[in-house]
Design a protein around this nucleic acid. Structure first.
Length: 925
DNA sequence: TATCCGACAGAGG
DNA sequence: CCTCTGTCGGATA
């Protein structure tokens, strides 16, 4: 169960009549305990209570009691030896009127009226195993609001199905945004009297809900009508009082239609309104409720939000750090403080993938904080903010988040005013809302950013080819940015090339606009980097995005980065790969990097390197490579053949067999072949898994000349036919046309004559060396490993070196942060000095020693042997020796560290690409 | 034809 | 459940 589901469950529980016997079980069930767990507690088997209550080991001790004895009961629970013995985290006592609980670890307590205990659900979330993310209990309000709005939304769509169709979705979303505004406004004093909106709806609408939509519609109309015009508009007195001011700002203009409310929907509405909306966090809340309007995402309601610290990883280096440094520098100098304030007023923040606006909101809040400090130092604490909300611009594809983004900014502005200037001044300046809409709903890759975020005073015209896509009113909004700065930021969508729609591919191709031959390889997020670079070329500014880390790896680098560099942009700062946490259940954790680009300046570049232990180390330097390492930008292009005398490395066999040609050990047994048949028709096959963890797989291996003989064996011919059928049905043209004609074989039929050196394509980053090994002439490879067929052993020594690992880790792609080997990107590009005969002899011996050391530990697997915590000393020594021999060949001594290794490799690579010119095609065996 | 990638995916503790 | 670590096959050039 996720937090939203739990909130719903305990809200339901609190609404039911109190049953002292059932309550403990119902409470535990609401927190996601399984029926069987509850059953065992009921039966008493796992109930450790010594007081007649319910005590779940390592969780909670619950005791219901007679009226008026709650406090005493809690004390009894605390004193109970069973509570300690069962390591309970919480104790809870209630009589159905009062409710008290204590978190025994922190000593924090909750005491409230029984019906209000769901307000404290965040307190109990550890019961559901939700402890890892602190934020969720800190933002309990946002989850409750999300949960209740979701119920309302779903209920309304049930009653008004036509509002769920595409053409009415916007109306529905706009309606929800209006409601949220009203809930916020009624609790923050913007409307007269706390809870005035909800109260009015409750009073004026019939209990049977028949006229709820009319009451709400009337209130909306009032908020869209200036006082002086209300009489003429026939607005009834109850809606036209001072309690409901003129709001507008586009929020209450447009269609005034309100969906019809069932009785249930009406009660949900009143329920949502009952929350204390002053506690809303516009940044968190916004991204949580996005899912409300998304049919596919609704199952993970409240699970997707970007954490504030992660957003600051973008915003701080982008411009906030600099502003704070200037504030520091200004000290109490009134003139400098004034200049800084003037600068703040002209800063624009532009998020071209703004979602519900959390980057914008956080940037806005941070700037207000700086402004407030300036005003404090200048003795002007009451001064109206000079930071215009309209300078926080966004583009969002989805309608509902776009609505919410603007609302979130409006709420943030009000909250900042209250915080820094006081409630009274905040109220005085709040209404009416500005009429402009600074959040554009549309496709950021199709819209012209220069017209949505136009640089003023530079005379840049709209780009003609995008003009037709741009809503005209966007270009008419004045920016208060004369002579100001623009900062582009955000977390755009990532989508690998395999998963993009034709539409999305076309967008990327159009954005690249002929500047690369291979736009088809780019991740969708690359479009934002290219557009940002183009924007900066015309209008200046800086940009930083959270991005899948793959844009700084492997094949993407030579496609994307030359394009960005050609606009005159450079990487100014970056965060290296880290896991981007959200709470979605099946989310394995996407690995991201943050990259900031802009016109080069003389200033230092900042590289924030994530270390293995989770800490971040900041390194300053003059240049950052597109692989996010320190150093001048070298770009490694893939090659079809190695430099110099390295052996040829080939891709493994792709089965494309639907499991018919590959066999487990058991599968092989069950074929029931004779010894002779096995000799002829079966080979061992290795994938990465098989090699690293020591599995055993086999494959059916039928040479063309043995085909007719194989077909006489029924088990084989059945499998061959199954493969033929599968390949004929494949969406892959190659599989249908070529592979289906030889269904008795894997895609390739490569196998060594004497031996094969193999390298797994993906392996854990924890290992200190790349796993590489050697297999015999009866063993072939899947497409998950690379093979050097019959290659001299010294090649293995090179692959097993620290030097090679550093190269692969830098220039190849990654799967999350794990090593992903590539022959074209990593092996064929690996720079090696010319090797003498003595060199190869020495290296061969090193390779043999490594293999021998491994054999001493038979039957340990590669995974066992190369576990950094338990790697055997003799194997480590063999590798040390190997590294020493290799590094002497490179520079006559050992390298000091990986940084030096990489520098040398890039230097050699640059030399070799210049000397060798274009690669020479080497014929394959 | 060869091969890079995955807002992942599936196994295991 | 959360942690760990590499399958599999489509899309590309």
């Amino acid at each position: 169960m996720n937090a939203v589901e739990i909130e719903q469950a305990i809200t339901d529980l609190a609404a039911q009549p109190f049953d002292p016997v059932e309550f403990p079980y119902a409470f535990l069930e609401a927190f996601g305990n399984k029926a069987t767990t509850i059953k065992r507690l009921r039966a008493g088997a796992s109930n450790k209570s010594d007081l007649g209550g319910v005590l779940q080991t390592s969780n909670i001790h619950i005791l219901t009691c007679d009226t008026g004895r709650v406090t005493q009961t809690l004390a009894v629970l605390k004193a109970s030896p069973a509570t300690v013995k069962a390591k309970a985290k919480f104790i809870l006592a209630t009589d159905g009127t009062d409710f008290e609980a204590e978190d025994l670890a922190s000593g924090e307590t909750v005491a409230c009226a029984y019906p209000d205990f769901p307000d404290h659900f965040g307190f109990f979330l550890p019961l559901a195993g939700i402890t890892t993310v602190r934020q969720i209990s800190e933002n309990a309000f946002d989850i409750r609001a999300t949960s209740r709005l979701n119920r309302l939304y779903v209920e309304l769509l049930k009653d008004n199905p036509e509002w769920g169709r595409d053409e009415r979705r916007h109306d529905m979303n706009h309606f929800m945004a209006r409601l949220i505004f009203c809930f916020f406004a009624e609790d923050t004093g913007i409307f007269g009297g706390k809870g005035k909106f909800t109260e009015t709806v409750a009073q004026m609408s019939a209990r049977d809900s028949s006229n709820t939509h009319e009451v709400i519609g009337t209130l909306f109309l009032a908020m869209n009508t200036e006082r002086k015009d209300r009489a003429a508009a026939n607005i009834p007195r109850w809606a036209s009082s001072d309690d409901f001011p003129y709001v507008n700002g586009g929020l209450f203009s447009g269609s005034m239609e309100v969906p019809r409310f069932s009785k249930i929907a009406r009660s949900y509405l009143l329920h949502v309104g009952g929350l204390d909306w002053t506690r809303i966090n516009p940044d968190i809340f916004g991204s949580m409720i996005q899912a409300v309007a998304d049919d596919e995402e609704r199952g993970e309601l409240g699970m997707h939000y970007t954490s504030v610290p992660n957003i600051l990883k973008v915003l701080n280096p982008l411009f906030l750090d600099d502003l704070r440094a200037k504030l520091e520098e200004a000290g109490d100098n009134s003139r400098m403080l004034l200049n800084l304030r003037k600068r703040l007023a002209r800063i624009r923040v532009f998020d071209p993938a703004c979602g519900s606006g959390n980057f914008l909101v956080i940037a806005y809040k941070a700037m207000r904080e700086i402004e407030a400090e300036i005003n404090r130092r200048r003795g002007e604490p009451d001064l109206r903010s000079v930071i215009p909300l309209t300078n926080f611009r966004g583009i969002e594809l989805r309608d509902f988040p776009a609505e919410i983004a603007r609302l979130a900014l409006v709420i943030a502005e009000y909250q900042c005013d209250v915080l820094y200037r006081g409630q009274k001044l905040a109220l005085a300046d709040f209404l009416p809302l500005s009429n402009e809409n600074w959040i554009t709903c549309g496709n950021a890759l199709r819209l012209d950013w220069l017209s949505i975020c136009p640089p003023t005073g530079t005379g840049v015209k709209l780009l003609a080819d995008d003009l037709f896509q741009t809503p005209l009113d966007q270009t008419e909004i004045d920016f208060e940015n004369e002579g100001g700065e623009t900062y582009i930021c955000g977390n755009p969508p990532y989508l690998g090339n395999t998963w993009q729609s034709a539409e999305q591919k076309a967008e990327i191709r159009d954005v690249a606009n002929g500047r690369t031959r291979s736009p088809g390889f780019l991740d969708y997020v690359a479009g934002w980097f290219i557009k940002a670079a183009d924007y900066i070329k015309h209008a200046g500014g800086l940009a930083a995005f959270v991005s899948t880390n793959s844009i700084c790896q492997g094949q993407t680098v030579p496609i994307l980065w030359p394009m960005v560099y050609s606009t005159g942009c450079d990487i100014l700062f970056a965060y290296t790969s880290f896991k981007w946490a959200n709470l979605a259940s099946h989310n394995a954790g996407v690995t991201v990097a943050i990259v900031g680009i802009g016109a080069p300046s003389n200033g230092l570049r900042h590289l924030y390197e994530h270390q293995d232990d989770g800490s971040v180390v900041l390194r300053d330097g003059t240049s950052i490579t597109p692989y996010l390492s320190m150093g001048s930008p070298v770009i490694v292009e893939k090659r079809n053949a190695p430099f110099s005398e390295l052996a040829v490395m080939e891709f493994g066999n792709k089965p494309s067999d639907g499991g018919n040609l590959l066999l487990s050990r058991d599968g092989l047994q069950s074929l029931g072949l004779t010894e002779k048949q096995r000799e002829k028709f079966i080979r061992r096959i290795y994938g990465s898994q098989d090699f690293i963890n020591g599995g055993a797989r086999f494959c059916i291996w039928i040479e063309d000349r043995h085909l007719s003989e194989a077909q006489k064996i029924q088990v084989l011919s059945e499998r061959i036919e199954a493969v033929r059928a599968l390949r004929l049905a494949s969406p892959d043209k190659g599989a249908r046309t070529i592979l289906a004609k030889r269904p008795h074989q894997l895609k390739l039929m490569r196998i060594g004559n004497t031996h094969t050196i193999i390298v797994p394509s993906v392996s854990s980053e924890r290992r200190p060396y790349l796993p590489v090994g050697i297999v015999d002439e009866r063993t072939t490879l899947t497409n998950l490993v690379f093979g050097l067929y019959d290659a001299p052993l010294w090649n293995l020594a090179l692959i097993a070196s620290r030097l090679h690992l550093v190269w692969i880790a830098t220039v190849c792609g990654k799967l999350k942060t794990d090593f992903r080997y590539s022959n074209t990107l990593g092996w064929n590009t690996f720079p090696v000095p010319t090797l003498t005969e003595k060199n190869t002899t020495d290296l061969t011996r090193c390779a043999e020693n490594i293999l021998l050391a491994r054999e001493h530990h038979f039957p340990a697997t590669i995974a066992d042997l190369y576990d950094p915590d338990t790697m055997p000393a003799d194997l480590r020594a063999a590798h040390d020796r190997n590294d020493e021999v290799i590094e002497r060949i490179y520079i006559g001594r050992c390298f000091k560290n990986d940084t030096e290794r990489l520098e040398k490799l890039f230097e050699l690579y640059t030399k070799m690409t210049v000397n060798k010119g274009q690669q020479t095609k080497v014929s394959k065996r």
